[in-house]
Design a protein around this nucleic acid. Structure first.
Lengths: 259, 259
DNA sequence: CAGTGGTCTAGACCACACT
DNA sequence: GTGTGGTCTAGACCACTGC
């Protein structure tokens, strides 16, 4: 915050003073707010300071702060509520769930089938295989947590997935803790480990069920399944989760919007 | 443009005068620009009037026009180019292609394998089946165009798809015209029929290849394929295309970003 | 050089939420 | 009423493009 802080040097128009940064003022403000989010200074669900206060704090106009927050809101990192203030976004809201769970029942509305039944099959610490280490930005052999679980809808097992998490960030995560938690996993990550997932990339494929998957999902071996490999990122595009899922798509489908 | 035009009645602050509309000024401006786009007044690739001119035309400040255009740019309906102006977005740019074609080779960069080879299998007019009519907002039995084609990458047939288009909007579309056209289909729709696809919803499933698909895609019957059903929309969310595709995902994958 | 979009400021008023 | 975000204006200067 020292070198390129917009609070110093310039008189009116932000020229960002000296050497390092050379970006618009509002980008610098955005960056500063982002750092506060990342540092956990303001936690998910928290009310952040008002635009007027931030403007005073950073010595810029309210309009500049507004533009910075506009972008953060567009990226779903904060949520604006007229008359109330601006809040740090959280996975604890129903509405947010569907951004990361794209599997919907073929018939019926959003969430008409009620919440998924989660069952943890396994949760163990181990050394990271090479491919997992690479995508998580770790070294091969570093400690990782592997979780395997099944999600069922209306009693029908529909999703089988494996998760890999960096061991360092998720100390103390156990099958019991996962099982006792109602609701989305990312919400637990926020409240228990201060890790907020912000963005994810997925690669989808159609594959044939192997013996093990067929048994877990109660389909015949060789049945087509949707393979979903996800890398989820926290602030600053730091990868924090690798997830490999197999979805039954006989009564559900994966929805996507292109725009 | 008469009833709720922002050009009249109010003196400074936009209160949108009389009865019908009750939305922010910039939304009304956005709406007016949208109408010009939809009417084909400004065509894909065209330079639209400058912010200053639009502000004068609509009797609002430049900042209000700017906010309207900002939203249009965020929706990819226009593209801003500093120093040059604002242009109507078009599918004729390489960069835009990848927004609607999500299948990528597992290895190699974007487009490293070169453009797809397109081969039209069939292109015929017929009466719309009930399900097609429903999703396209037509009546059962209305004229529709059905196109069937295969896309190959480096000689390997990878995508088999059926398209349905409203007959009324695509008069004169023939297999020859499709075949003679190099490049993306949506670019042809723009230049030849004045139809610009703006947004699309997709439903994905894993399915087993039937006899016909297996033959066309050179896989064994029963092999897993990714089924992609797309409804594409033009301005104002009017559905203009139903597309059902089967993708081979043994050397390619469907990529998606969640945010 | 003139023209365009991009950034920044300052000040006004509106719509909404809480108290 | 007070404080918040939301809208709108007016004017300044910057950065880029093309003549």
């Amino acid at each position: 915050m020292a070198t390129q802080a917009p609070s110093f040097d310039e008189s009116q128009i932000g020229d960002a003073s000296a050497a390092p940064a050379f970006s618009p003022l509002y980008q610098q403000i955005k960056s500063l707010i982002l750092q506060s989010l990342q540092a956990g200074h303001w936690k998910p669900g928290d009310l952040i300071p008002s635009e007027i206060e931030l403007a005073a704090r950073f010595r810029v106009s309210q309009g500049t702060v507004r533009k910075a927050i506009d972008e953060l809101a567009a990226e779903h990192l904060v949520v604006r509520r007229q008359g109330r203030g601006t809040f740090v976004a959280t996975h604890a809201e129903q509405h947010v769930q569907f951004r990361f769970l794209r599997l919907l029942p073929d018939h019926g509305d959003l969430g008409s089938e009620g919440p998924a039944q989660r069952s943890i099959i396994d949760c163990k610490r181990q050394r990271a295989p090479a491919d997992v280490a690479r995508t998580l930005g770790l070294r091969t052999g570093d400690a990782v947590l592997q979780v395997r679980r099944v999600l069922s809808f209306q009693g029908v097992p529909t999703i089988l997935e494996d998760l890999w998490l960096p061991g360092s960030a998720f100390k103390g995560l156990t099958a019991e803790r996962l099982a006792s938690h109602q609701g989305a996993m990312y919400a637990l990550f926020e409240t228990e480990f201060g890790v907020r997932m912000v963005r994810a990339d997925e690669k989808l494929r159609a594959v044939a069920a192997d013996e093990q998957a067929a048994e877990r999902l109660q389909v015949t071996p060789g049945a087509p399944l949707l393979s979903v490999e996800r890398v989820a990122y926290t602030y600053q595009d730091a990868p924090m989760e690798l997830r490999r899922g197999l979805y039954r798509t006989d009564t559900h489908h994966y929805r996507n919007s292109l725009s």
